[in-house]
Design a protein around this nucleic acid. Sequence first.
DNA 1: TGTACATCAGTGAACGCGCGTTCACTGATGTAC
DNA 2: TGTACATCAGTGAACGCGCGTTCACTGATGTAC
Lengths: 218, 218
Amino acid sequence: MDRRQRYREQTRDEAKRIALEQLAEAGPSGISVNAIAKRMGVTGPALYRYFANRDALLTDLIEDAYNDLADTMQGAVTQRAGHATQMRALATAMREWAVAQPHRYLLLFGTPVPGYQAPMETLAAAHRSMTAVLATVGEDTEPANRRSTLYRQLSAWGEKMQTGDLTPKQLHWGVTVWTRLHGVISLEITNQFEMTGVDPELVFKAEVEALVAWGERG
Amino acid sequence: MDRRQRYREQTRDEAKRIALEQLAEAGPSGISVNAIAKRMGVTGPALYRYFANRDALLTDLIEDAYNDLADTMQGAVTQRAGHATQMRALATAMREWAVAQPHRYLLLFGTPVPGYQAPMETLAAAHRSMTAVLATVGEDTEPANRRSTLYRQLSAWGEKMQTGDLTPKQLHWGVTVWTRLHGVISLEITNQFEMTGVDPELVFKAEVEALVAWGERG
DNA sequence: TGTACATCAGTGAACGCGCGTTCACTGATGTAC
DNA sequence: TGTACATCAGTGAACGCGCGTTCACTGATGTAC
């Protein structure tokens, strides 16, 4: 029977669900094995049947978040056609995901968890989001200045990521999309706009349109 | 005699210095009253003569960091002339400050410290950085679309901040400078560029030049 | 279908540790006459 | 200049709490003949 295995997965999922609630309420350092167990109606050591230790649990949460975000962004892009349309869909999907669950976004891109070293497994999941961004890239018409250090580094990165025939200029565009969207989103979900009375969503949309305009200019 | 008072300040400063070391090593949650006292060769309760409690200490660190960053940015801008030159100086100063002490930058703009509510005092310090950004703003020639929601909110914010005769468009420029610089800087100091092999400084410089070019276009 | 054995979930005690904060107290440093 | 008093820094014990993790053990669930 695999009833045991199904039960194992349910228990793991419940533990992670509660861990996410703790993350939302008290940040990464608020995630406690003992407290999770107590809320599951079980003693602390019981959870060590399901996670090697606290860090393993954290790794699971991080990997899940990367994958969830990447799925959301991929989904937004692949269901649409045209670079401008894809760009807007990607940006909206990314922001809405982050605003709906700021603690998960900050788990990935906020202050690094002290003493925690991300294992290799999470890297693959992280790459998938960048792939979605690169799907919104337009054509590259002008010949690039291949001699600049930045473009050489971008080329090397593109080869490592197997992005196929994307030029350094296109990769640079992808990076810029990423940093600009992150800039507005991260300031929004850390409440930095609060004291200004300015709606972060409007700032975000304006930034997206600036990107679209720039993208169409080539 | 004010020997006592000078001694008080020295003790406060030493406590804050050690707190910053803890912040660098173990994040905000790694700041511990007892551990600070121990490293000062004193018992835990002694520090309650100098700080009402742990949150008051945190508030001090945050206020200091805001003021330090604002001073750095103000200094970079006021010593130079010309919008493009000021823009480059401001951006460089901001990035170098953040890269030199990422834990302090993240204390201000990273994941909010759970359970900590920033008091009003820190707001004034926060505003000073934005003022430095707004000093790099160019002329506004075109008439703005004053009917948009974003521009109305920006106007209200400008009046509240007493920015004088800056137009909504110029305020929007200031916000955009802020979000774009923060986007690259925050991803750099959370090591998100590490796995790409791309030098964040080059990405940053390219972003600054894009801002300069946009600023000169008007 | 029934019995013997293996697997595994969960318990409870324990280890060693650190935390923020209060309180009554001692002893040193300053102030006023 | 000397003495009486007030101020203040720091101590040590205590409170109540939570943490991650280990270990030997019980009892239930599954598997093999």
